[in-house]
Structures are given as C-alpha cells and as structure tokens.
Amino acid sequence: MQNKNENAVNVLQELNQFVNDRIEGYKHAADLTKNPAHRSFYNKLIQESNDFSNEINRTIGSFGGERQDGTTAKGKIFRGWMDVKSTVTGSDEESIIESNIYGEEWAQKAYNDALDHKAELPQSVISMVEKQKHASEATCEQLKQMKESVD
C-alpha cells in the first residue's frame, strides 16, 4: 500500500503533464494570434502556468519524487491538429480562443481528477490544487468573454 507522499507524487506528476500542456498550448496561441492584446494575455498565462508547474515540481520534490517536465500524448495530438487546422482554414482569433477554452476545460478536468484523491493527499497538496483549479476556472471565463468580443 502506498503512503500519502507516494500518492501525492503520483497525482502531482500526472497533473503536471496537463499543466505543461497548458504552457505549450498558450505558447502556440501566442504564436498564432495576430491580436497584440491576446498575445499579451497568452504570455501572462504562460508565466502563470510556469509558476504552477514549478510549484507542483517543488512539492513533488519535497515528497521525494522526480520532476515532471513532460506533456500528455493527447496534448501533443491536439496541438498537431491545431497546426493542420490553421494551415487549412487560417488562424482566426475565434478558433484560437475556442481551442484555448477547450484546453482550459481539459485542465479543469485534470484538476478535478487530482482532487478525486483528496482522501489520499496531504492538505497542503489539496490547497495548492484547488488554488490552481480556481485560476483555471477564472481563465476559462476570461476566454469566453474574449470569444464574445470577437464574434
């Protein structure tokens, strides 16, 4: 049977793959957008995501685990699909924002999956995951507002 530290490491390593997908997704969006305000927003989200990843990796290390710097296979496939889509249809702002909304909804699912293990996690980990999840929810709402403004 695993102890709380091992459970925390496993949950956080998996979660950090999704956070790293978030970083790559916003880098991709910043490269594609032609709107300077959107690019600035995406760059802010890249920094926020880097901060989240660093926080997760510090916590993993404090429990004796190895850093998680990789991304998910699904994220890689999605970014590849976005490249194909932008080549065929162009990189319009609405489709970039829609992709980011999808990515944030996916990130929230990853946070929820991590929180499904609350009984196995230290309170400090639960608090960190909840804080990051709330930030993701706020970002998703901002993206939805951005989408409405470009319609």
Rank of each mutant, 00 (worst) to 15 (best):
S86D: 13
N43P: 09
S136V: 15
N16G: 06
H38S: 11
G103F: 12
Q123T: 08
Q132T: 07
K144N: 07
Y26Q: 01
S62C: 03
N16T: 00
S124C: 05
A37S: 11
C140S: 14
Q2C: 11
S62R: 03
A8Q: 01
S40D: 15
W81K: 06
V129L: 08
A107I: 13
S127W: 03
A37T: 09
S49M: 05
Y26P: 01
Q13W: 03
I126R: 02
K109T: 12
V125A: 04
T87W: 09
S95A: 05
G90W: 06
Q47N: 10
V150D: 11
E141A: 12
S49P: 03
Q68C: 11
Q132I: 10
I126N: 00
E24R: 00
D116W: 03
F41Y: 05
F63M: 03
G61S: 10
R79G: 06
N100F: 05
H28M: 15
P122M: 09
A135I: 07
S86P: 03
Q142R: 05
T87M: 10
N35Y: 01
I77D: 00
A138I: 04
S136C: 15
T71H: 02
L12Y: 06
Q47H: 01
F52V: 07
H117Y: 05
K76E: 05
V11I: 13
A73E: 04
S62M: 11
I23D: 08
E48Y: 06
V88I: 14
L45K: 02
A135P: 10
F78C: 08
V9E: 08
K109D: 12
I101F: 10
E148D: 09
W106G: 06
S127T: 09
N10M: 11
W106E: 12
L121Y: 01
G90M: 07
Q68A: 15
T89M: 14
T87V: 12
S91Q: 07
V11S: 07
K27Q: 14
A135F: 12
N43V: 07
Q17K: 11
G64D: 01
S136W: 04
E120G: 11
N7I: 13
E105A: 13
I101S: 06
H117C: 04
G70C: 05
T33G: 07
Q2N: 15
W81T: 07
G65M: 01
L15A: 10
G61W: 05
S40W: 02
I77K: 02
E48G: 15
H134D: 15
G70D: 15
W106M: 12
L12D: 05
Y102W: 06
S62W: 03
D151W: 02
A30S: 15
E93M: 01
N35A: 08
K85C: 14
